[in-house]
Simulated scan of single mutants.
Amino acid sequence: MFTSSAISRTAGLLTIRSGLFEASFNVKAGGRMSQLAHEVYGHVLVPMSDDPFDKQDWPRAGAFPLFPYHGRLKRAELVTEDQLFQLRGNPYRNGDAMHGPAQRRPWTIANHSASVLSMSLEYEADEDWPYSFRAVQHFSISDQRLDVTLSLLNRSARPSPAGMGWHPYFAVGSGVELFCDAHESWSLPTPGSKDDPTLTLLQSASFGIDPQAKHLSKWSRASFAIPTGCVSLLRTSALEYLVLHRTEAYLCLEPVSHLSGALSLPSHLRTSAGIMELAPGEMMVGGVSICVGRQPSSNNINEFQ
């Protein structure tokens, strides 16, 4: 983890690069970022291997898009005001649907230059999601910063519940203290429970060094030290929720637009949990940045120019 001169290049992957910072992508494998590494600061994300994988049981590496929702959809049932849709469940998740279908579809390159990559997915309603949409991921890299912008457009002729996010696996496990300025932490109901999520106000920015899972909101920055400096995740627009999932081997910091499992909540609770209802032709947009180098003193993105 975080060794210098860490960039390794694999044939067939698209790359963007600025100075010593490089990102690689496997567009056909679900629009994934397969590697993010700096020649001084090392691997920022756990690098993906070239091995094939089951689309329903993805590798814990790289980063993948979360459209048009994230988290579990219990029993793969999507309930709207006037209809129940039985979606295809995930056999590895007890038949629940999880993290939306966008990461299991090939994406299309929209724009690619030395330091910029945009990719899109024109999704047609099917058994994984009953609404058509267009999803876009836009990546721009500079010497010590990667900017990520996500957008989701409802292409259906009817309103659609909607959410989005991004799921990176940072190359740091337990033993390194994590800081995040989130104001709120959520406790989610246990499977089968009819309880509502409960909210706790946070008193400390430190999340310690141990494996854990947290569901946070009202955040703007998360950061952790590496031997050569610091890695920070900055929220630049929308995406007010953050999933923190840490194991001995990796750290997931997932910027998302809604609370995990929000689509399984009663309809009157979904809006307060971040789920949007997009009218036909309506779009939602959000963004984050990953910065490497010195410890930032503020959330001002200009510090990393």
Rank of each mutant, 00 (worst) to 15 (best):
N94P: 02
Q137P: 01
P255G: 05
R72Y: 06
S232L: 03
D196V: 03
T198C: 01
V136T: 05
A213E: 14
I275F: 00
V136G: 01
S232R: 01
F207R: 09
V243T: 12
G30A: 02
E303K: 11
G12R: 14
E122Q: 11
S298M: 00
T80R: 08
W219T: 03
Y131W: 10
G163I: 07
F170I: 06
L13S: 10
S4T: 02
Q35H: 13
Q144S: 15
W166F: 15
P189T: 08
E254R: 02
V176P: 04
G281I: 00
H183S: 10
R134C: 02
L263G: 05
F207C: 05
Q56H: 05
P106L: 10
Y92L: 12
L251Y: 04
L87G: 04
L242P: 08
Q305K: 15
E39D: 14
F85V: 13
F139G: 03
A182Y: 02
D82G: 14
Y169V: 03
F67A: 07
R158D: 08
E282N: 07
F64E: 14
S217N: 08
R17Y: 01
A23G: 14
P211F: 12
F25G: 04
G31L: 07
V172Y: 02
A225T: 09
H43E: 09
K74V: 02
A279M: 06
S257Y: 08
N300D: 12
E303R: 00
S113E: 11
G261D: 05
N299Q: 00
L20W: 05
G163L: 08
V46L: 12
S193D: 11
T149E: 13
P227S: 15
H138C: 01
S160Q: 13
E248A: 11
G286A: 10
N299I: 00
D82I: 15
S151C: 02
L45H: 06
C230W: 14
N90H: 07
E277G: 03
V285T: 03
S267R: 14
L152N: 09
L199K: 15
T271G: 09
S118G: 11
H215P: 08
H112R: 06
A162R: 12
T190H: 09
D143N: 15
P280C: 03
S260N: 13
M48T: 14
R235N: 05
G208A: 11
D181V: 00
H258K: 15
F170L: 06
L253T: 00
G274T: 08
E81C: 09
D195H: 07
G19K: 13
G89R: 04
V231Q: 12
M119W: 02
S237C: 11
F2A: 11
H43A: 11
S298K: 04
L36R: 08
P168T: 13
S267N: 07
V44C: 10
R246G: 04
A162I: 10
Q144Y: 13
V288A: 14
H245T: 13
L73A: 07
S193I: 02
S151F: 01
Q103K: 04
Y250D: 08
E254Y: 02
H268N: 06
S272Y: 00
G31A: 00
R105W: 01
L239R: 04
S8V: 15
G261E: 11
E77V: 11
L87P: 04
Q56P: 10
V44Q: 01
M48L: 14
P65I: 01
N300T: 03
R158L: 03
Q295G: 00
V256K: 06
Y69Q: 06
R88M: 13
V285R: 09
G30L: 15
